[in-house]
Amino acid sequence: GSSGSSGRSAEALFEKAVTPSDVGKLNRLVIPKHHAEKHFPLPSSNVSVKGVLLNFEDVNGKVWRFRYSYWNSSQSYVLTKGWSRFVKEKNLRAGDVVSFSRSNGQDQQLYIGWKSRSGSDLDASGPSSG
């Protein structure tokens, strides 16, 4: 396997189906602990309180900046600041899948993707009741 291709290759890290609370009023995405510790390790315990900023590029080349931190209270890793904007713009709903990947190049650029639960990018559910 030669890695001399000019195309940007990225390694898929993990996917997560968002829950109602991920796209709800809490404005945060919970990242499964084993994925968080493996792919987005926090530098040290004192940083985890304030969190770090992670930049993710989407398929359109737009860069999203999320605050990533560890909540001791719920023992969970979360993306907070910036997440609600992503949810709004992509019109994410519970059951939709968010995917994370990382470039194999020197820059280690992070990428974020999404797909609706139905598998299509179109919302074919018609007018929502309620």
Rank of each mutant, 00 (worst) to 15 (best):
F86S: 05
L92F: 01
A124V: 02
G113N: 12
V30Y: 00
W114I: 03
N27C: 14
K50T: 13
N55L: 12
N27P: 08
G126T: 08
S128T: 07
H35C: 15
E89M: 13
L42K: 00
Q109Y: 13
E15Q: 08
E11L: 13
F40W: 12
R67E: 03
D107E: 15
I112H: 04
D96L: 04
S21G: 09
R28N: 01
T80P: 05
Q106N: 15
S103P: 11
G61S: 12
K16D: 04
V98A: 03
A36D: 12
A124M: 07
Q109N: 15
S101H: 12
G1K: 05
A124K: 05
N46K: 09
K38P: 00
S2K: 02
F14T: 00
S45E: 13
Y68M: 01
G119W: 10
G51L: 05
S74P: 02
G113I: 02
S76T: 12
D22C: 15
S44H: 09
W64H: 11
Q109E: 14
K62R: 06
V87T: 14
E89P: 10
F66I: 02
N60S: 15
V87C: 11
G4N: 06
S3E: 07
S21T: 15
P127Q: 05
V98H: 01
S2W: 03
D96Q: 07
I31Y: 00
D22Q: 08
D22P: 11
Y111T: 12
V63E: 15
G7C: 11
G1T: 15
K38A: 12
S118P: 14
G51T: 03
W83Y: 02
P127Y: 10
R85A: 12
S129N: 15
L92H: 06
L26E: 06
V98G: 02
L26N: 02
E37G: 04
L29R: 00
W71Y: 05
W71S: 03
R102K: 13
R8L: 12
F56T: 00
V23M: 02
R93K: 14
G82M: 04
N55V: 15
R67C: 08
W71H: 03
K16T: 14
